[in-house]
């Protein structure tokens, strides 16, 4: 199970994105982060092996997040459910 890393110039926050490859709002989130030059890691949960899906489920829930996509976790503490541009801008300072 491997997160994909997207490099960017803004590295002051640890940004983790749980996504689905088919999900429109996940694509918008990826695009937004890339456009803003934010470095982030993401995983497309629908493309994982079955055994890894359960690990991801536990990891999402353990952070107090919901099983909803996209879920963005900033610095292991701020949870953003859905593509919420204003909230992302504020939290990431972009």
């Amino acid at each position: 199970m491997q997160f994909s890393k997207v490099t960017g110039k803004k590295v002051d926050h640890k940004v983790t994105l749980y996504a689905l490859s088919t999900c429109v709002w996940c694509k918008m989130t990826k695009q937004f982060l890339t456009d803003k030059g934010v470095e982030y890691e993401f995983i497309d949960v629908d493309l994982l092996e079955d055994n890894d899906k359960e690990k991801i489920r536990q990891s999402i829930l353990s952070k107090g997040a919901k099983l909803s996509y996209p879920t963005i976790i900033v610095d292991d503490k701020t949870i953003i459910t859905g593509f919420k541009k204003d909230q992302l801008k504020e939290v990431l300072g972009v």
Binding site: L20, S21, T22, C23, V24, W25, V45, D46, K53, L67, Y69
Partner: peptide, 15 residues
Amino acid sequence: TNENRYGYPLCPCRL
């Protein structure tokens, strides 16, 4: 993508 993958047009926003 979902219809071709699963055989039915599953919601693209859900797993």
